[in-house]
Computed example of a mutant assay.
Amino acid sequence: MRALMTTSVLAASLLLAGAASAQSSIRPGQTVQGNFTSKDARMDDGSHYRCYTMQTNADEAYTVTLSSSDFDTYLSAGPGADCDDTTVSNDDGPDMGTDSQVRFMSNGGLWVIKANTLSEGETGRYQLRVSSGERVRPTTQVLPISIGESRQGRLEFSDRRADDGSYYDCYSLQIARSGSTAIRLDSGDFDAYLALYQGPQCDGDSISSDDDSGGGTSAQIVETLRPGTYSIRANTLGSDETGDYTLTVTSRR
């Protein structure tokens, strides 16, 4: 009896693991119809999910949409084929009610997409749609900014990309007289990151960098600068993040 119970438990465990690891494939430009039932794999929070892998091309952006009239959707995606290792996620937006949408830029290779119910035990029909790849070439533009000026900007897939996969805009700053200069980056859409460089191109070793010195997720650098040309990276802390920001440069005495 003990051996029989052990075998039964093992079989059940293998069945659950098989359901959790099962993956389907989806192609760019394809739409698939699905139906969550009580037999589908569950997350630790009890919500059902299915995993899809997709072959992507380098330097192309993709939009993935998960919609359902039966349950509140949750969607996540990430490079590779591990359904537990996703880097972008979304619940309700943008402006899509209970449908979900993520957009990401690929360096090529496989991406995994996790279609998920938001809450425990939800079931029902859904539609998963992937756009065709959109070719994106990052800008090389350098934007001017002066002391006493604030600039509104937006980081997106067409912006420069750092080695860690984060997006940034490059600003050129002319300093006429030596003095203390404060540079601040604020955003309600992402965790801000700043870096200051000698020269106009935001490259080489940074003079200074900062994550959260501006309070919360705002970044701030305060440095005494000599006359010359400097450049500022208005940057996201994490990879694949996008959104609006405000960059402000002021003089301090």
Rank of each mutant, 00 (worst) to 15 (best):
N57M: 13
Y62C: 08
Y62S: 07
T63L: 12
T63G: 05
T63K: 12
V64T: 06
V64G: 10
V64I: 15
T65N: 14
S68F: 12
S68C: 10
S68R: 05
S69Q: 14
D70F: 10
F71C: 06
D72Q: 07
D72G: 13
T73P: 03
Y74H: 10
A77T: 06
G78Y: 03
G80A: 09
G80R: 07
D82E: 05
D82I: 06
C83W: 07
D84T: 10
D85L: 11
D85H: 12
D85Y: 09
T86H: 11
T87H: 09
T87I: 14
V88N: 07
S89D: 12
N90P: 00
D91T: 12
D92L: 02
P94F: 11
Q101G: 00
Q101V: 03
Q101L: 02
V102L: 01
V102F: 00
R103Y: 01
F104D: 00
F104W: 04
M105H: 13
S106E: 00
S106H: 03
L110H: 11
V112M: 10
V112Q: 08
I113K: 03
T117P: 01
L118Q: 02
S119E: 11
E120H: 13
E120Q: 15
G121L: 05
G124H: 12
Q127V: 15
L128Y: 05
R129G: 09
V130N: 01
V130A: 11
S132V: 01
S132Q: 02
S132I: 00
G133Q: 06
E134A: 14
R137P: 01
T139L: 06
T140Y: 05
T140P: 04
T140F: 04
Q141T: 15
Q141W: 03
L143W: 09
P144F: 04
E149V: 13
S150P: 06
R151D: 03
Q152K: 14
Q152A: 12
Q152S: 15
R154T: 15
R154K: 13
E156V: 10
E156S: 15
D159S: 09
D159H: 10
A162S: 15
G165K: 08
S166D: 00
S166Q: 00
Y167T: 02
Y168Q: 15
D169M: 09
Y171G: 06
Y171D: 03
S172F: 07
I175N: 01
A176W: 01
R177F: 14
R177T: 15
G179Q: 04
S180E: 11
T181C: 13
T181L: 12
